[in-house]
């Protein structure tokens, strides 16, 4: 972006402008499946306050959200539901895989738990931790914003 002092107008690329508005209003779809969801609530609450980054509007409808936070253990039975909700979200959409279970199956090395949600949906950012601290989730959100600003998918 370039700001012209004298004449008071702004030049930019359309993509950059769109990405700037997208990254600063990432409305999350809280796919809270297990204990990571508690940390996700804390991340949304007043103490860690995700509204500083424009993501305070948790929409419980996939139709109105941009970012799906998969917070918890995804079983094979639940995978179909997660995929369905992902499919219902309008483009552009991003996925955050929050915690060890969603990213790799975590401690549930078992026949019933999907060993990482990237086996059935594309993931943009992974958050380590079991469960991750809210600061860690905030950090992931900021990294995701950088990624959106770089126009990566």
């Amino acid at each position: 972006m370039g700001l012209m002092d004298k004449d008071g107008f702004l030049t930019t690329k359309l993509d950059t402008l769109l990405n700037w508005s997208r990254k600063n209003s990432l409305w999350p779809m809280p796919m809270g499946i297990s204990c990571c969801a508690i940390e996700m609530m804390s991340f949304a609450g007043p103490r860690f306050d995700v509204s500083r980054f424009g993501s305070e509007v948790f929409r419980f409808s996939p139709r109105q959200s941009d970012l799906m936070i998969v917070a918890g253990t995804v079983t094979y039975k639940m995978a179909k539901v997660v995929r369905k909700i992902y499919d219902q979200m309008p483009e552009p959409k991003w996925v955050m895989s929050m915690g060890a279970c969603a990213s790799s199956g975590g401690m549930y090395r078992s026949y019933s738990v999907v060993q990482g949600i990237d086996l059935f949906i594309p993931v943009d950012i992974y958050v380590a931790g079991c469960p991750p601290r809210p600061e860690n989730v905030l950090n992931a959100l900021i990294e995701l914003q950088k990624k959106i600003a770089r126009n990566e998918k």
Binding site: A79, K80, R83, R109, S110, Y111, S112
Partner: peptide, 21 residues
């Protein structure tokens, strides 16, 4: 029957289908 001893820990691959990616 997954808790029988002969059932492998990680299950039988493909027995529960995942959605397409």
């Amino acid at each position: 029957f997954p808790l029988r001893k002969e059932f492998p820990l990680m299950g039988i691959p493909g027995s529960i289908p995942l959605p397409r990616k």
